[in-house]
Each structure stands twice: as C-alpha cells, then as structure tokens.
C-alpha cells in the first residue's frame, strides 16, 4: 500500500515531466492565460496504468477503454479556445509539425478549410509495421488542439469509444456543407 502511495505521488509529481517523445513548445503553456477554454491533460504510462486499475472489467465501457490504453505509453492533450484570433503563433505549430516527419511519421489526413481558416491533420507513427503513435493537430483562428497518443493504438477502437465512457457519439451530418476542401 505504501509502495502504491509512493508510486501515485511520484506519478502525479512527475506527470508534467513525462517522457513525451513529441516535444511541445514551452510557448504553448503560456497560451493558457489567453485562452477562453483550456484542456491540458498529461498522462504518462504510469498514470495510465494507475487509471486503468480503476476501470472495471465488468463494465463494458470501462473494459473497452482498458483494452485501448493497455498498449499506450502516454496521452497528451493540449486544447485551447480563444476569444480573439491571432492568440498563438504559427511557428508554435510548425515546431510540432517539424517533428512529425517521415520515415517514422506519416500524415494520413490533412484537411484545410479555407472558409473557416481551419487546418486538421492526423499523423500516424509506424514502428515495425505497427501503429506506434497518433497525433491530431487542429488549428483554427480561435482554436488550437494537439493530441499526442504514444504507443500501440488502434484508431478503430478509438472510434468505437464514441457514445461510451462519457464520450459523445458524433454522427456525421449529411446536410452540413461548409465549403471545406481536402488538400490530400
């Protein structure tokens, strides 16, 4: 019990210093002060393992999430929503994008909405022909979201989480037409 306690304290203490392979610029942390809404989640392997202990095998949703995070080394999310445009620098995003290069990384989706000025990208990391990481990069005039999932991840499993575990199920709206154009 004492060992567990020490492990938990160490997890929480060292969580911000987690060995995240993708280096996020320090300037992103300063954006929190400017942002209207902030989501900042840092979960390394130890914290994920700790959280999985509180996921029940009997509960279907919990079991699904437990299976999903079983092979993960970390989940890091930084999401900011601003009231005004120009709150962040494009160079901040570029420094992240520069790390997501071949051969380790490949961009599987790139969506640019000229009308809304939004850019969405999904990168996959391949290790020995297996997915070893996932990065979602969403930038908009008033939004910046970086999701970095390290470890063996199955995107289909992620998709299946919609509607479970408190995650809203988002159905595609066939009526929506906003002039977005895909650049890939």
């Amino acid at each position: 019990m004492i060992a567990l306690r020490i492990a938990c304290i160490t997890c929480f203490a060292l969580a911000p210093l987690g060995a995240q392979e993708l280096k996020l610029p320090a300037s992103l942390d300063a954006l929190a002060a400017k942002a209207n809404e902030v989501v900042d989640v840092t979960m390394d392997a130890n914290l994920l393992q700790f959280a999985s202990r509180f996921l029940s095998d009997k509960d279907a949703d919990d079991a699904q999430v437990k299976k999903l995070i079983g092979g993960l080394k970390g989940i890091y999310v930084k999401s900011f929503e601003f009231d005004k445009t120009g709150a962040y620098q494009e160079s901040d995003v570029e420094s992240v994008r520069a790390q997501l290069r071949a051969p380790a990384w490949s961009r599987i989706v790139g969506v640019r909405s000229r009308k809304a000025g939004e850019n969405s990208e999904v990168y996959l990391k391949t290790e020995n022909s297996k997915i070893g990481g996932l990065v979602v990069l969403v930038t908009g005039p008033k939004e910046l979201t970086i999701v970095n999932i390290e470890g063996a991840i199955d995107p289909d499993q992620l998709k299946e989480l919609g509607g479970h575990f408190g995650i809203p199920k988002i159905e595609p709206d066939p009526k929506r037409k906003n002039g977005e154009k895909k650049d890939e």
Binding site: V77, I149, K159, L161, I167
Partner: peptide, 9 residues
Amino acid sequence: ALKVTVTEL
C-alpha cells in the same frame, strides 16, 4: 483526453 481526441477525429 479521449473525449477531446474522439471529438476531434
């Protein structure tokens, strides 16, 4: 974290 990820995807 999963909510943000799934929503964005």
